[in-house]
Amino acid sequence: MSADRGRQEGWLLRLWLRNALVWAALLGLLVLSMFLAYIPMGPVTVTSGVAIAVIKSSLVLVFFMELIRSRALIRIAALAGLVFVGVMFALTLADVLTRSGKI
């Protein structure tokens, strides 16, 4: 019984530790993005906010949503949404960013 309890406490600790590390990284990145927003770096300021959002969402997708342990079919389903959003952004911005005059 005590060996069972010890095993249970062991995986419980690992479970919390593993997820708390991801959570701490997410909060750290949140604070970083807030501070970077106040530093005047031109276009880099905007890019840093979005880049940090991409890193944060990747952490959630990979660890909290367990894509790291998912089957290939699930990963493809997740990727499908991102690919089509990518196409939508690429085609629209290819137009908007190459216009010579204002609308």
Partner: peptide, 26 residues
């Protein structure tokens, strides 16, 4: 349910820099 919850979180992660961070450095 957990997967749905996390996606709602991911959406907010992107909304945060777009809503709250513009114009802070200028």
């Amino acid at each position: 349910t957990a997967l749905y919850w996390h996606l709602v979180d991911v959406v907010w992660i992107f909304l945060y820099p777009l809503i709250y961070l513009p114009g802070r450095a200028s």
